[in-house]
Amino acid sequence: MSRQDALVSADWAEQNLDAPNTVFVEVDEDTTAYEGGHIPGAVKLDWKTELQDPVRRDFVDKAGFEELLSSKGISNDDTVILYGGNNNWFAAYAYWYFKLYGHQAVKLLDGGRKKWELDGRKLDTEVPQRSQTQYTAKEQDTSIRAFRDEVVNAIGTKNLVDVRSPDEFSGKLLAPAHLPQEQAQRGGHIPSALNVPWSKAANEDGTFKSDDELRALYEEQGLDSSRPTIAYCRIGERSSHTWFALHELLGETDVKNYDGSWTEYGSLIGVPIETGPGQSGSGKS
């Protein structure tokens, strides 16, 4: 994996809006953003209602993912270009999710909605009609998905990267500062975790920092690239952004996203929790 395989620029996107076998897909934290205007021809995926199982706390299963992509008119041989708001954090989550179910030809639009809008590029409210396909997914690739027991066993042995803000990491906040703080769970972080906020991987306009800048960032924070890495946040979307930076841009081989993240870990009975700034420099705000 490299930057060329995983990212497309806004210029490239604008020139390839009508390219064959290319589908633009918007995935936003604000699930109403699409309706207000989207990249012409893009379809919408709702991370909350379409990518999550409506009953169990898990993703839709393989059959559900096949049905979803078929209904969106996405084929196995299509290249999917994902983009979204808030520095692509839910688009990165969808990227990881597509990879989880074995869709290899997927890329992120660098900068997402923010750069597109700040550049003054065209947005459209017309919802494209794509004909139904027969999408076939693969079994989940759990080499990129971590579960709770593995995370507990990783304490002190693997790199654990907590990508939340320093205040969430230390236990002062339970959710990002633009969301209500209503969760009933413990605050803090997994012992031995480094705190490298996901946002450090992005420039102000939402584009990813250069490979050299990213490598320096994680090295400086103490990430040991000879060890496997598990990234987590609150619900697994911001950590997808970091998973993308480490696995897809820097080419680190053993990197997993723990999508259970703090909402699961911080509610488990009996697991160790650390509060305060932790070991890495960035938590000491």
Binding site: D30, A33, G85, S165, P176, H178, K200, S285
Partner: peptide, 13 residues
């Protein structure tokens, strides 16, 4: 929203 060290904390539209 940036903290006192200039670090990004959250973003809204």
């Amino acid at each position: 929203l940036l903290d006192r060290t200039g670090e990004f904390t959250a973003e809204v539209v």
